[in-house]
Design a protein around this nucleic acid. Structure first.
Length: 417
RNA sequence: GCGGGUGUAGCUCAGGGGUUAGAGCGCCUCACUGUGGCUGAGGAGGCCGUGGGUUCGAGACCCAUCAUCCGCCCCA
């Protein structure tokens, strides 16, 4: 009880660890079907990149960044999300020359200095996809579809996509002005700091939980009335593609995403099982990000998936993958057979059978109880009598049957079951 | 960053100033000396989160601190 984990981290049980690895494998398998290649960790987990991530790509208050001074008094900020670092790696290593299309995936921890609560940690993990180099609506739809297929494969029930388009600069400019007009009376009473924040990105008002704001915005026309013609065309096309792919989606004009590098398509995936704990993932198109980070003028669309939240939903509905039980438990009938049991364990493991054995030659009752607890199907019992006869008693713990099997044939016998 | 709840056995929790801190589940042993699950009996396991304070006496009350959970904020 004296050990206390660092704030905002989780105690991870062995079974949780297995679920995590299983989800990771599900993600890798699924996205590889669509041609996404994984960026390995060392490629983009560079401290300097973290540092720049904080200032350049986000105007979100820095108190949510995980910042500290290192031993050289440099200000270090741990990366708060995966997209910008992945895009930096892409620029740095020229992974997407103009004229080509590149599909990247990554699995990475991210860090946020927030008050931890359920479903929100200081070191959460993110699965991410970046589809770079295409401005086609099919790219938007592909990223959304892959994301949904992943959640389906992971066992997330009742999922649906919330879809919106926030248009291009002119559209957002016009809409922002409209929002500020509608909320002028509210803003007048607000502190200077708040006004400065909102003026920077008035779209954030749309998903505000403040009732006064929501009342004022009741008469606000939807953003679709500010769309330019090509935005509308893309949005229609994306919807058609999603329908064809049988991806369940709803239009959600209130979804604007927090970062200002998004353009046009934005989406989230929700599950009705998650309740108020927000979305499982967030994504969309960001056609200006690569240029802003110093790369070519490349269009891009991507998604970041919250690993812990996904696991929470899967856990909630009891669709956890179970750790596979061992195949055999070796029971030493009498201390004299203990060494021979070890030899048999080596033999079974050489035959690729997952084999357990008690560490001490305890009573058979205790050993069999261990076997039962471990969930194994077979107990292989070896004592002096069996050694003399050159056999092993193999007990089927499920059926309660017991078979006498020649020692030399045990591996084969077990493998054919 | 703001407000609130909770820290007692491996787990879930009871005990709300007064002997030696409890229950259920789990674990171990025995009944059954070479056969699991069921039953019964017995047993092990506690810096009562940590530090300070009040008191004759603190697991309990007060302060601080750490952890954790729930709102808010925020959500890449």
């Amino acid at each position: 009880m004296r050990f206390q984990a660092p704030r905002g981290t989780q105690d991870v049980l062995p079974s949780d660890s297995y679920k995590w690895l299983h989800l990771e494998a599900t993600f890798r398998d699924l996205v590889s079907l669509y041609g996404y290649e994984e960026i390995r960790t060392p490629t983009f987990e560079d401290t300097e990149l973290f540092t720049r991530t904080a200032g350049e790509t986000s105007d979100i208050v820095t108190k949510q960044m995980y910042s500290f001074l290192d031993k050289g008094d440099r200000s270090i900020t741990l990366k708060p999300e995966g997209t910008a670092p992945a895009i930096r790696a892409l620029i740095q290593h020229n992974l997407c020359p103009p004229g080509t299309v590149t599909r990247l995936s990554y699995i990475t921890p991210v860090f946020r200095y927030e008050r931890p609560q359920k479903g929100r940690f200081r070191e959460p993990h993110q699965f991410g996809l970046e589809l770079v180099g295409s401005s086609a609506a099919t790219a938007d739809a592909e990223v959304i579809e892959v994301t949904v297929r992943f959640f389906e494969a992971a066992g997330v029930p009742d999922l649906f996509v919330l879809l919106n388009s926030i248009g291009r600069e002119a559209c957002r400019q016009g809409y922002s002005e409209a929002i500020l007009r509608f909320t002028a009376s509210f803003m007048a009473d607000q502190p200077e700091e708040f006004r400065a924040k909102v003026n920077k990105n008035p779209l954030r008002f749309l998903d505000s939980k403040d009732e006064a704001i929501q009342v004022l915005l009741k008469e606000l026309p939807p953003i679709s009335e500010f769309w330019e013609e090509d935005t509308r065309a893309r949005f229609d096309r994306v919807q058609k593609l999603l329908t064809a792919a049988e991806v369940p989606y709803r239009l959600a004009p209130e979804i604007v995403r927090g970062l200002d590098y998004y353009t046009e398509t934005v989406f989230e995936v929700h599950s009705s099982y998650l309740g108020s704990q927000s979305a499982l993932c967030g994504g969309g198109r960001y056609d200006n990000l690569i240029k802003e980070l110093g790369g070519s003028d490349l269009p891009s669309v991507g998604v970041g998936i919250g690993v812990e939240r996904t696991l929470m939903v899967v856990e909630e509905v009891g669709k956890n993958p179970q750790v596979p039980a061992p195949d055999v438990f070796i029971v030493a009938a009498g201390a004299e057979a203990f060494e021979a049991c070890h030899a048999m364990a080596r033999e079974l493991r050489n035959g690729r059978l997952k084999t357990l054995m008690d560490l001490e030659p305890r009573s058979m009752k205790a050993q069999l109880r261990q076997a039962d607890k471990a969930g194994v199907r077979f107990a292989a019992i070896l004592g002096e009598d069996e050694m003399a006869k050159g056999v092993v008693q193999v007990r089927d713990l499920l059926k309660g049957e017991q078979h006498e099997v020649p020692s030399v044939g045990v591996v084969d016998w077990l493998k054919t079951r």
